[in-house]
């Protein structure tokens, strides 16, 4: 049985923009993101990237255009931070994966931008969740793509690290002119930090700048109104007591 959760999705992100996909559990945020990233097959429709069908992209071509950060755990946590980030250079290395001078400088760039210099010789099992997430983002950065997709990059993190990661994403998007799209449950933070937000609802979707979405009262219908109420003034949700 196929349950259609979202239809007629239509949104566009520009270069250097940070976008968030928000919505309730099970609405299909991750599915959408993973389909866009060709991690899973699309159910129907067409996906185009730079005016070219996603399915026509060769694996390596896509790998140098789009990188992903997923929620699934690493198979081996015995890699050092540096080794893991270096794996991001795989689309560009030769048949045995030898790093060129350019590869090494890209890796250094990613390490510097995400401020991982002090951690680079640590093994991944020694890292906290927040540190590991930053390393995974650095790996995607080292892959040197114009688009980065992240599936719930802030889950399992405390408030401070959630903000840290999202601010980092914003900085990367603005500074490196990459297009970054992520799914999240941190709606209030997304409102404060993102350039664009896609709200996925059962009966439609809204897309646009957070301030305009607030004006359009788009956040009101996100959750059942008997439990949560969106307060436009503070751009936050209030619990109905």
């Amino acid at each position: 049985m196929v349950t259609t959760v979202a239809t007629g999705l239509n949104f566009s992100l520009q270069k250097g923009e940070l976008g968030a996909i928000v919505g309730v559990n099970g609405i299909g945020k991750s599915t959408l993101l993973r389909t866009l990233g060709k991690v899973q097959r699309k159910l129907s429709g067409t996906i185009s990237l730079n005016d070219k069908r996603l399915k026509n992209y060769a694996a390596l071509e896509l790998a140098s255009t789009l990188s992903i950060v997923l929620t699934e755990p690493l198979v081996s946590k015995n890699l050092t931070v540096q080794e893991l980030i270096a794996l991001g250079r795989q689309p560009y290395t030769n048949w045995i994966g030898k790093l060129s001078k350019k590869d090494i400088s890209k890796i250094q760039e990613a390490i510097a931008l995400i401020d991982l210099e002090g951690l680079k010789t640590k093994k991944c099992y020694e890292l906290s969740d927040g540190q590991l997430q930053r390393v995974m983002i650095a790996r995607a950065l080292a892959q040197d793509t114009s688009i980065i997709l992240l599936d719930e990059p802030t889950s399992h993190l405390d408030l401070h690290h959630k903000v840290q990661i999202l601010k980092l994403l914003k900085r990367i998007a603005h500074r490196t002119q990459k297009t970054i799209l992520f799914t999240s449950h941190e709606i209030e933070m997304a409102i404060q930090l993102c350039d664009k937000i896609l709200i996925m609802n059962k009966d439609g979707h809204e897309f646009g700048e957070p301030s305009k979405l607030i004006k359009k009262q788009s956040f009101e219908s996100l959750f059942p109104s008997d439990i949560l109420k969106f307060d436009a003034k503070t751009a936050s949700f209030k619990i109905i007591k």
């Binding site: 694996a59 896509l62 990188s67 992903i68 997923l70 795989q90 689309p91 892959q143």
Partner: peptide, 8 residues
Amino acid sequence: NYARSMGV
């Protein structure tokens, strides 16, 4: 999934 996303 990561392997595939890196062009493998």
